[in-house]
Design a protein around this nucleic acid. Structure first.
Lengths: 346, 346
DNA sequence: CTGAAAGCGCTTACAG
DNA sequence: CTGAAAGCGCTTACAG
């Protein structure tokens, strides 16, 4: 049972397929006799006719398809970004083809070639954590937007979070709560994301003349984070608050606090960054977080794609999104600041 | 700068575009003069010619495109499944178009229509947790495979994990370690996945004549899981081991154990299920897990798709994958079984 | 007001 | 051995 074509509809009514096309595309008025219009509409309905998108693409030279290059893999792509991009695309009548770069030039080149063969109208490159990304040569000829990664040479438009701002915001929350000794649990020391987040923290910490110590957790895994947090917390003069650069690290910090019998927030305040996996917000108590605005970034990127397609305007932009704080229950004034009676009353 | 077509290559060499097509598709031998063949190959290379996949699709009536319907959203789809499916597709020369069902009949219908318009050759429906899935009528006319969900009426082929087997395997590990009082931390009480996992546990527990108590954690979130675990652990005769039906629950259990000063595994053994987000394996100590075989399931599903495309064979199958145990460091014999000296030596 | 033609880019029979 | 034609399904000028 073959899919019906415009010809089938035409045959059923007894008109040419141009007439069918005209009517179905709303150009019937003044071109096709009203009674034939009606007949065509009915026949199309009855046959459940829908135009073949492939033929349409060939004819119109518009595929309404956008390629998504995930770096290094779809698996790692933040779920909110994925969802928002797909959502936006669907709403705009576009379809998305996903391909992994594998974090490998060779694989990426292949993927890019496939996408071009498929005549994608634009490209979205998405990374799981803020990274530098150098677009390969052939990418230059397709409208491209980088999400959560950026080209150091700024040859392509990018949408990124303000990571150092996020670090600063986290530190500021602790300063505001009255802390003066904080620990920083950061991610991989050589990641640009880590560098930025830590730098943001230090900027506020320095301005506030606070003491701070940083531990790096290479894999951002809870296990190593637990160990790192313990190191910080078992010092003679331990920090009264911890900034965790990633939700998985936050889990580790919470674990270390629990082991040490430190109650959150009374005896230890916690601020998390990112939380794309929704872990920090689901701990007990829920952790105050400087969120990465995955959804807004994705939506912005997508609308910029659509714009560039419609206007053929090609100026390169670098959009940085502020990471908004979400206040929850993991931060309070440090214990030393609390009145003796308050402490005793527990 | 338009993309070069076969005609451009033909013009450059001075032959017809049929000749170009013949040579480029390896049908030159015996049809085209050797020197012309060489010239065509060179010209194609020089122009960087690659056939237009859209035109190819229209001509061959094969799009080499597979639709992926994510239920309810790509965001929730297990990353390993996503990655494996994409990987398989790429390797097989197929391309994937993703669409969300939104968990909504209306949205799903739209998505399905779009996918059909795009002439996808087959469909993959993927769910984040084992669920019942009733394929809508129009899906019946496209080769479809359900991943991590199944049609109760078995009208469509599905690939699922053996969830009750997973529960049983978890319980068996604890039986083998000598436990006789276990707690079960399950997910949403009304989810079919939960029902299966718990049933699997109980089967072994009953056979071993063990005591067991179950707590449901509706959202599978660490916070609620912590509370639930505490409830279990603060009883007069607490369980010596916990089965956690999901990695997020495992995090909560670890947190409760830490708060209560219970060392893992010496004072409390832990077994996790699933761990698609790689949390259980990254705790300290790493937790013994009955993994859901996401990658094998995805690969199987994909190869079945390809098969059904090639052979036009249409028998419905229901494939269930065993969930393999991964032994790590969170299980040991219960304390009461340990010799007194062993306990004292700490 | 209507149908026939051209053409998007490709490949595969089919004449010569 | 080679080129011209047909046709995948569609739409948009273009004759009548």
């Amino acid at each position: 049972m073959r899919r019906p074509t415009a010809q089938d509809v035409a045959d059923l009514v007894g008109v040419s397929r141009s007439a069918v096309s005209l009517v179905l595309n709303g150009h019937g008025a003044g071109n096709i006799a009203p009674n034939k219009q009606k007949a065509i509409l009915e026949a199309a309905e009855r046959l459940n006719y829908r135009p073949n998108a492939v033929a349409l693409s060939l004819r119109s030279q518009r595929t309404r398809t956008i390629g998504v290059l995930t770096w290094p893999s779809v698996g790692g792509t933040p779920s909110l970004i994925l969802r928002a991009v797909l959502n936006s695309a669907t709403r705009a009548g576009y379809v998305l083809i996903f391909m992994d770069t594998g974090g490998d030039q060779e694989v990426e080149g292949q993927a890019l070639a496939t996408l071009r063969d498929r005549q994608v109208e634009a490209l979205l490159v998405i990374a799981p954590e803020l990274t530098d990304y150098r677009p390969p040569e052939p990418m230059m000829s397709i409208p491209t937007i980088l999400v959560n990664c950026a080209d150091p040479q700024a040859s392509v438009t990018s949408v990124v979070p303000d990571e150092s701002g996020a670090g600063a915001a986290a530190a500021q929350i602790l300063v505001d709560a009255g802390h003066s000794r904080v620990g920083i649990l950061a991610g991989s020391p050589d990641a640009v994301q880590t560098r930025l987040r830590v730098a943001g923290c230090h900027q506020i910490i320095a301005a506030a003349d606070m003491a701070a110590e940083t531990q790096f957790v290479a894999g951002c895994d809870p296990g190593s984070a637990t160990v790192a947090a313990r190191t910080l917390l078992e010092q003679p003069e331990p920090p009264t608050a911890l900034i965790c650069a990633h939700e998985r690290i936050t889990v580790g910090a919470a674990l270390a606090a629990a082991e040490l019998g430190l109650r959150i927030p009374e005896e230890l305040s916690l601020v998390s960054l990112e939380d794309g996996e929704q872990l920090a917000c689901q701990l007990a108590p829920p952790v105050t977080t400087i969120e990465r605005p995955d959804r807004p970034m994705a939506e912005q990127a997508f609308s910029m794609i659509i714009e560039s397609l419609d206007s053929a305007e090609t100026s390169v932009k670098q959009v940085a999104f502020v990471c908004p704080p979400v206040f929850r229950d993991s931060v309070t004034a440090p214990r030393s600041r609390q009145s003796r009676s308050a402490t005793a009353s527990r």
